[in-house]
Design a binder for these strands. Structure first.
Lengths: 225, 225
DNA sequence: TCCCATAGGATTGGATCCATCTCCATGCTT
DNA sequence: AAGCATGGAGATGGATCCAATCCTATGGGA
């Protein structure tokens, strides 16, 4: 047997597995801002030692999903309204750049997938599904950006506001959905035309409008800070 | 003795100490892009176990100073010219925002310190000292920004380009120093006037000019990528 | 009755040891 | 002689155990 066993169940570094699990739990709203994450809990639940959990927590800290305090443990960061507002302003400035870097490298396959995703979004039913699709849509438009630092930061900004986006979408109802759809379609068209200027402009507007609507819903942050 | 012993030599979490040491080594150019960082080496050198070193490497990864590959170890990232150029564009977009957030909270003490720093910069002799002062000057202008995510990202961008900035400054010589000084003075004045619009504008120009001059020195990236 | 000090449990941080993976050099085969 | 398989050394990933720190509940004192 010269070649490595093909059956091998890709073990993929325990710390990576733990990180994936926790990330899903936080993004899915299972854990929620301010909640504490105990090392032993997670270790026991996932059948691993505490060590990979510690490493996973460090990785998630890098992604903005966890904050660590020495000797006091890890918790999901709790953001205030102003903080979220500034993070959206950061998105307004960074994501258009990521898009410009991405557009020249977007394959036809990805363009097709984007169109299909937007179609699904317009058919969307529940809130959870919309959040998932919207996230996939936007992040896929950045798939061609091969500057790792930039992609990572954009992902990080999405991660740390995911919870509040969920709360916001749940509150605001579907009567403004047509606005999102119109913006997405214009964005898609600009991307298809490889017009980075237009694309940047539509994207910036899309994020800015969301930020301002979000600022009108302070109830999303009730009981926080 | 009810109060904690005041003499206590704040031990400050070994992993923190290791991270500090490595950060200084990388920013100081002792380690250099592409070089590998072996866990045991560092552990032995700093008289600690390998475990805090592993955690430190994760922290530095979050700061963009280290990149980790599973089962293959850690190394200092090596950036290409285009990558550095995009990182500078990110700075052009993010740092003005950080500055706007910071300005309203800057105390008189900090303003005084900034003026003093600029005076020192105009007196600067060697390259290493200039880099240090310039870094301290700019980061201090962001000291009032209490959005942790934003401050962290700005710091990260500075960190990951520090090496190339050093190479650039060493090459370009002191005949353009007066430009930097003029820009710094205008920036300082705008900050003192609490004029965020002007300050953002000067800062953006300052970074942009540096980026474009840097792009004229591809020799900084010789032998890389 | 309220506040502070103390002791205990709970939780995180660190060290050592073992398993697994990668990389390189050696030697065999063609 | 060239190329590939194999074995060993080195380095990283993981598990268990021990130490240091933090939080809380309890009890004593003003």
């Amino acid at each position: 047997m010269t070649s490595p066993p093909t059956v091998e169940v890709v073990v993929a570094a325990a710390s990576q597995r733990v990180a994936d699990h926790l990330r899903a739990a936080i993004l899915g709203g299972v854990i929620g801002p301010g909640e504490r994450v105990r090392q032993e809990d997670v270790a026991h639940r996932l059948g691993a030692s505490r060590l990979p959990v510690r490493e996973a927590l460090r990785m998630l800290e890098a992604e903005g999903l966890i904050e660590n305090e020495t000797n006091k443990g890890a918790r999901v960061p709790r953001l205030g309204m102003h903080e979220v507002d500034v993070i959206y302003q950061m998105r307004e400035r960074l994501e258009p750049l990521a898009l410009s870097e991405s557009i020249p490298h977007l394959s036809d396959a990805i363009m097709a997938k984007l169109t299909q995703l937007q179609a699904e979004i317009e058919d969307h039913a529940d809130v959870g599904r919309f959040l998932e699709l919207d996230r996939e849509f936007h992040l896929l438009t950045y798939a061609g950006c091969d500057i790792e630092q930039l992609s990572a930061m954009v992902r990080r900004l999405w991660n740390s506001t995911q919870y509040y986006r969920r709360a916001f979408v749940a509150l605001s109802g579907p009567d403004r959905q047509w606005v999102i759809n119109a913006e997405h379609r214009l964005l898609l068209d600009a991307i298809a035309r490889r017009d980075t200027t237009d694309a940047e402009s539509y994207l910036r507007g899309h994020i800015r409008r969301t930020r301002i609507e979000l600022a009108r819903h302070p109830d999303v942050f009730l009981g926080l800070e």
